[in-house]
Design a protein around this nucleic acid. Sequence first.
RNA 1: GCCCGCGUAGCUCAGGGGAUAGAGCAGAAGCCUUCUAAGCUUAAGGUCGCAGGUUCGAUUCCUGCCGCGGGUACCA
Length: 579
Amino acid sequence: MNKNPGFYSVTEKSFYPRNSIEEDLNALIVGSLKKNFGLKQEIVEIEYPSDRKFGDYSCNISMKLTRILKRDPIEIANILVEDIRGSDYISRVEIKRPGFINIFLDNKYLIDQLRFIGEQYGKDTVAYKRKIITDISHPNAAKPLGVHHLLSTIIGNSINNILKYVGHEVIRDSYWGDWGTQFGKLIYAYKSFGDKDKIKDDPIPELLNIYVEFHNRAEEDPSLDDKARYEFKKLEDGDKENVELWGWIVKLSKDEFFKLYKRLGIVFDYYYGESFYLPLIDDLVIEGKKKNVFIEGEEGALVVEFKDIPTCPVVKSDGTSLYHTRDIARIKYWLKKESPDEMVYVVDAAQKLHFIQLFEISKMLGLSSCKYRHASFGRMRFKDKSMSTRKGNILLMEEVLNESVSKAEKIIEEKQSSVSDKQRLAEVIGIGAVKYSILSQNRTTDIVFDWDRMLAFDGNSSLYIQYTYTRVCSIIRKSEGVKGYKETVDILDIERDLIVSLIRMPRVVLRASKEYCPHIICNYIYEVCQLVNSYYNSCHVLNEKDLDTRGFRVSLLKSVITVIKIVMDLLQIELPEKM
RNA sequence: GCCCGCGUAGCUCAGGGGAUAGAGCAGAAGCCUUCUAAGCUUAAGGUCGCAGGUUCGAUUCCUGCCGCGGGUACCA
């Protein structure tokens, strides 16, 4: 059993992209294992060696089999290598102590692979397609989008893109928080000290103000929490005034969210908030009771008890619903409507217990036809611990984006860019930087917010990728009239390395899709760009005398552009052709 | 208390049981008469928290300890 439920195991089918080199190599070795040793193993690990001198691919199977076969790994490797050697696309196979099989691909074969790198490269590589419903971003209508929302929003959106690209059917449902006790607080605050005109003028900050004010007052007078719960109770019971107020607040928030989603390039297929599932809750409660899953708890609340994890309330003592209740209703709804294979929640790690409970309850209710996954990520914290919605000094998502764009503007000014639409370029660079800084890390630990890090424009950053892209675009623009090349063209080591990197892309993307980890793609494209920049510096393309070589170089760089485009699209980061 | 996660270079972080643990930033030394120097090259920087265990092989898996963070019934 894997530690992280998002991680695949080596026994899983569909381990390699369909029609990939890895799939071929795997079949070759698996066939040899069967022929020589009668083994039925279907997957062997084809690895990328730490150093290219150890081959383009390597396999460790002979060491893994030493105990099972009770033979020396070198001896096993020798037998396997006899079969591998015969393939025309492999130029050389080496055995290295303590038993690695290192495989080198033939140069002509590698050059030929460039043909396949087109707009669809690495697409639909998954062997078993699934229908997946995702929950990302989850903004809360009672509060503005803070910088911490960027994690689930940006990572989740990229996960949606990646899952789709490799061939899954993805239903992007924006399950957003438009219901819950926080509305009771907001409604109470509005009624007792809210200023309607102020809210109309500048809704989002003013709603936050009264929300914060409520918490300040509640600290002095804890009875306010009960009053807020009472307002929520009235709302859930359909009180006309409260429902109207709620609708108004939700509308204001929704407009705000959409504005930001548009700026980030994020779209959904459905926008069903929590309130959408309310009509299903009565039946759910009846069913839960009937199945003895929902049982009477303290003070008349309904709870679910488990063997090893804390008890979880599903209906409050005053009869109102909870986050869990609406979440279960949502699962019921979608299972009936779409029969998905999987439901994915891209939510921070602090909510782990919530999801363990939710998934467990779903199974107890018989909702087990689908696989549930909490793709968890770290929370964003601040050096100053008082940064929270309740305290009010929240850092808004929009502020961060604006700050990044204005930093980008300054850089564009410094570099004396000749681009005509500098504002547009600043937006592309600024937003890209924020996205990349979030996407490139894989921490389940909390992330401490840091401006320098969030707005990184050096080293492993989106700007580096974007700059590489524009440099290559520039060469391609000037390469008109450059002809093709003969397949016998001689290539340099660095060109060979570059091709080997490019053809790894399908597997990298597939792996990112299996682990729900976009950062794998960031690491990959950064490495590719490092190679490209190094190449750019050491070889000239357009001045190259040899026509074949020049043709090949242009063609190679076109493939580079294609790969950068595809993966940056998966990360939802725009690429400028000029900077 | 119990449960979960994390601890890798001065800082921020990659690292799929595999070969000499890698990047960026900061600091040091170089490279623009050639396709965008927003770049490239080189050197320096490590007890992979500590101690055991499993394994041909452990930064990676297991156990214990230490440190940090999160969660722990009517918040989401």
